[in-house]
Computed example of a mutant assay.
Amino acid sequence: MTVLMFHSVGCEKNEWYRNWLSVSLDHFESFCKFLVDENYETVFLDEWYNEQGSPSKESTRKVVLTFDDGYLDNWVYAYPILKKYRLKGTIFVNPEFIDNSENIRFNLEDVWDNKINVGELSPIGFLNWSELKKMDSSNTIDIQSHSMSHNFYFHSNNIRDIYTGQPHYDWMAWINKPHRKPYYTTENQKQFVPFGNPIFDFGRALGLRRYFPDENLVKYAIELYSNNEKLRDKSLLIEKLNKKLITFPGTYETDEEMEKRYRYELFESKSLLEEKLNKKIDFLCWPGGGYNDLSVNLSIEAGYKASTVSFKDKKLVENNADDYKRIKRSAMGSFISTNTKYHYVKDSNYLINLFKYHNGSVLHKNLYRINKLGFIILDKIGL
C-alpha cells in the first residue's frame, strides 16, 4: 500500500518562503480524478496499520494520502476536493501552530454554493480548532500528531552563519515568539530576531541534544554587527565570534532536560489532540524525519502505534511485523528542485506521473530524470 506525503494545496503562487511545499489545484484535482478513474481506494492509517506485516492482506489498489503541518489551505482547498471525489486524507498537526481564531473560514464549498467568489478565499495560514473538529468528524479527514512544536534547534557550537533576515531561518522567530507561530506565513517576523545573531549548526527538535549559546556571546555578536560596518562581512564576524567562544562556550541539555523536552513534544501533542477532538491519536509524523532512539522509544511509551520513517531508514519497513510500525511515505509536489531553485512543473498530469514513478514505473522514473535535467540546463544558461 502506497503512503503519499503532501503538505500545502493551492498556494504555489503565494508569496511565502515555503510555497514550493504546495501542489497546485490543477495538479491536485487531476490526481484525485485519476485515483477515482483507476479505482484506487484511499484509506486512513488504521487500515494501513492492519495490513502491515501480512503480505496476503496488502493491497496495491489502496493509497494513504497524508498532509503535513496543518496549513489552512487543507481546509480551504484539499478538504472540499477530497469530499467531491469521495477520497480520504490524514492531516498531521502541530498544536503550537494551530490558529487562535474560532470561526470556521470560507472554503471551496462556499464558492460552489455561490456564497463567495474564489478570489475572496484566504488560504494562507494555519487551521484552527473549529476547522480541525469539522474535518475530523467527517469521513474524509483523519487528524493525527506531528509533535508539538516542529522547531529546529542548535545542536553544536559551530557557527555556520549570521542572521540578517534570511527567510530560511524563519524558525528563529518561532523560538523567540512562540505565540506568533501560526501567523508566520501572513506577517513579517524578521524583527523577532536581532540581526547579527549567530546561527549555529541546527537540526530537527526530536533528533538532537539542544545547544544553548551563551547570552554574552549572542549580545556581543549583535552589538558588533550593529555598530561596525566592517564586521557586516560575515566571515570576519564569525572569525571574531569563534575566538570569543573560548570565553563563552555555551551549554548543552542534560539527559534529563532532553527527555523532558521530548516528552512534551510527544505526550502533550497526543494528549491535547485527543482531548480537543475526543478521539484516540495513534499515529505520529516526525517533523522533517527528525528522530533518534530516545524519541522513538518515548513515542512507543506514549502509545503511538506507528510513526513515519526517514528515507535513510527505509530498511526498517521491509518487514514491519512488530506491533510498533514505521510508515514509509513518498513525497508529492508540483516542483522539481535543483541546486539553485525550485521549478514548477506545468504539466497537469505531473502528480499522476510522480505517483507512477513512486510505484516503480521505470518509464516515469526516467521521465522525472529528463524533467530535472532540463531544469538544471535552464539554471546553467540563466533562464
Rank of each mutant, 00 (worst) to 15 (best):
L217W: 01
Y220Q: 07
A221R: 02
A221K: 02
Y225I: 03
N227Q: 15
N228P: 00
L231T: 00
R232S: 12
K234I: 11
L236S: 11
E239Q: 14
L241S: 03
K243W: 11
K244M: 10
L245V: 06
I246F: 12
P249N: 07
P249S: 11
P249I: 05
T251V: 15
T251G: 01
E253F: 08
T254Y: 07
D255W: 12
D255M: 10
D255K: 14
E257L: 14
E257M: 12
E257H: 04
M258D: 09
M258Y: 12
E259S: 11
E259Q: 15
R261V: 13
Y262S: 05
R263L: 13
E265S: 05
K270L: 09
K270I: 01
K270E: 00
L272F: 12
E274I: 02
E275V: 07
E275W: 07
L277I: 09
L277R: 01
N278Y: 09
K280V: 13
F283Q: 01
C285R: 05
C285W: 00
C285L: 12
W286A: 04
W286V: 05
W286S: 02
Y291C: 00
D293S: 14
S295M: 07
V296G: 00
N297L: 12
L298H: 03
S299M: 04
I300K: 15
I300W: 00
A302T: 08
G303K: 04
G303V: 07
G303C: 08
Y304I: 04
K305M: 10
A306H: 04
T308Y: 01
V309L: 08
S310I: 04
F311N: 09
F311C: 03
D313A: 12
D313S: 10
K314Y: 14
K315H: 15
V317K: 00
V317A: 01
N320S: 08
D322W: 02
D323V: 09
Y324D: 01
Y324H: 13
Y324A: 00
K325L: 03
S330G: 10
A331H: 13
A331V: 15
M332I: 09
G333L: 02
S334R: 05
S334N: 08
F335W: 10
I336W: 05
S337V: 09
T338F: 07
T340C: 11
K341M: 11
H343E: 07
K346R: 14
D347H: 08
D347P: 04
S348I: 13
L351H: 08
I352G: 11
I352K: 10
L354E: 06
L354P: 00
F355R: 02
K356T: 08
K356Q: 13
Y357G: 06
Y357A: 15
Y357C: 14
Y357T: 13
